[in-house]
Structures are given as structure tokens and as C-alpha cells.
Nucleic acid binder design. Structure first.
Lengths: 155, 155
DNA sequence: TATTGTTATACTCTATAACTATA
DNA sequence: TATAGTTATAGAGTATAACAATA
């Protein structure tokens, strides 16, 4: 196998592993009672600072009207609050409530639970995976998912 | 790091790598013009034999009425055909057309394209990943995705 | 005049139940 | 009577366009 074939095979195995966990993810989403979009939004929110609706809509790549709807869903559950920005009264920033932070932490933790089949891997196997994938730029992020940081100039 | 922590870290990196490819998957789906369900169905179909709607509905875990709808979408695009089973005239089996097989092959091939960032990994890195993940039960499947093979007794 | 967010509206997807045709 | 698939219908989610408030 040349390198390209090896890369393809490694990637295929990554996909298969994730595919197998599909049920776990779906169960997580369903027991949360949140729709997939709101769950993604919850995970995306920055616990350390408010983020404007517009920035969030760009992060999640949805229309502004959909963001209104998603935030409504989280607000109903008291996981977030809308705050009018004092600098620009058109802007509304979304902040996680205490309840929202707890929910975010809980979901991330469960999301990151490795599948049971990982128990069959040796420490060396796991080190091999971690060493390789740790080199990818995606791994360099300090946090978890790509949290929507507010852009420098606004909010 | 103990083994459990290592497993969690390896899994986290897997998720991050997949997450990064999200855009590629979404672009693929969107340029196909198929909805996610029909795309999944297309991938799930067995190119070598017809599979009953019921079996497919179980594979994809959707209601029979949804399967009717998904198959309608693929049929509109002439990617599949419905054939009444000669043994049991209640049963309709779905077969890929030539066009459908080509589409399936094309999507699988693009789906399995490793991300550009994999170029930064060494052959040893890739071997490490493939060796480890190759041990998982999900990897044992000969084909690609969990293709819905018709169950022994029927069809 | 441009931008942020909301509302009105319509369309797509998904789920349940009632129906048909076969067995 | 039970099963395979469809149709009817309603609901959730998503997108577009028109709108109000603010810049």
C-alpha cells in the first residue's frame, strides 16, 4: 500500500468507527429533548462570553431567522438568555445560563465517551491513534468543538 | 495518562477530525441534490441484489412510510427501480439502476476521500491509525457502509 | 442607506394512523 | 388474521422575503 492508499484506508476506518457510534449520538440528542440544531448551538456557545446571534448564525451556517428559532428553543428551557448589546442596540448577544453551562458540559462529556469497542484496543494502539491524529490542525484547538468566539470588533 | 484517559483522548481526536470534514460531507450532500435520507439509502443499497423495502426501512431505522418517500425520491432520479417480488406479491424489492450504481460508487469514493490535512501525517502515523482501528468490529465489514443485505429467508 | 434580529410564510422531511392488496 | 407497502395528515425543522428598530 502506498501512502495515498494508506491514508484512504485510515480515513475509511475513522468513518466506520464514527458510523458505529451513530446510535449513541442519536440517543444522546433524543434524550436531551433538543433538536439537532439547538444541541449544536448549545455546544457551540462560548461559556466565557456572550456571542451575537449573527456570529452564531455564521458559525452554525444557518439563516438568521433559523437562529432566532434555535435560540427560542434554548431560551424556553432556560439554558440561554438574550441580552441587548449596550454598544449597538440592534445586536442581541446570547449567553449561557448556569443551567446551560451544566447542560453543555454534560453533553460534551457524553459526546466524548469512547465507544465500548475501544476496550479491545491496547495502550499502544491508542497511543498510535492519538499520536497521529494529534498532529492534525483540528486537534490543536484547546477546547472541544469549534466554539463561536465573538469577532474582535463587534459586540 | 491511564488507558481510559488515552481512549478518551484518541476518541476526541477522531471526533475533531470528522468534525473538520463536516463541510465536505455537507457539500457532497448538497451538490447531489438528494436529501440526507435518500443519500443514506443510496449508499445502503446492495448493488448485487434487490432488497425489500421493509429490510431497508429496518436498516435505516425509519418508518415504512418514510421509506416509500425516500425510494420515491431516488426513483424520480432513475437511480432505483421497484420490482414486485415474484414469490410474494406484497413485497417490493428495490434495485439500483446503472445510474444508481454509478452514483453510489461516486459518492462512496468522495466520502472516503481523506481530508487534505492527512498529507501532513507520515506513513507510520497512518499505519498506526489503520492498525488500531482495524481491530474494531466496525472495521470487519468487507464493504463500505453497512449495506442492507436481504435477510436469508425472504425475497 | 445598511444592518440586526423578528415575523410571515411556504416547503421539505419525518412520524402516526388508516387504507389496499396480498398472504 | 397478519404483513408489505401506500396514502392522508399533521408536525417539526429549515429557508426566503418582508418588516421594525437602530446605526
Amino acid at each position: 500500500m502506498n501512502k495515498a492508499e494508506l491514508a484512504r484506508e485510515a480515513w475509511r476506518l475513522l468513518i466506520e468507527a464514527m458510523f458505529e457510534r451513530q446510535g449513541h449520538f442519536m440517543a444522546l440528542a433524543s434524550e436531551s429533548g433538543l433538536n439537532p440544531g439547538s444541541l449544536k448551538l448549545l455546544i457551540t456557545l462560548d461559556p466565557s462570553q456572550p456571542v451575537s446571534m449573527r456570529t452564531l448564525a455564521r458559525s452554525i451556517r444557518c439563516d438568521a431567522s433559523v437562529m432566532t428559532w434555535l435560540v427560542d428553543r434554548l431560551e424556553e428551557r432556560e439554558m440561554v438568555e438574550r441580552r441587548v448589546s449596550p454598544r449597538d442596540r440592534r445586536v442581541k448577544a446570547v449567553v449561557l445560563t448556569k443551567k446551560g453551562m451544566e447542560a453543555q458540559e454534560m453533553f460534551m462529556s457524553r459526546l466524548l465517551e469512547p465507544p465500548p469497542s475501544f476496550a479491545s484496543l491496547t495502550v499502544d494502539d491508542l497511543k498510535g491513534v492519538a499520536k497521529a491524529l494529534g498532529k492534525l490542525p483540528a486537534a490543536r484547538r484547546p477546547g472541544l468543538m469549534p466554539v463561536a468566539r465573538a469577532r474582535p470588533k463587534r459586540e
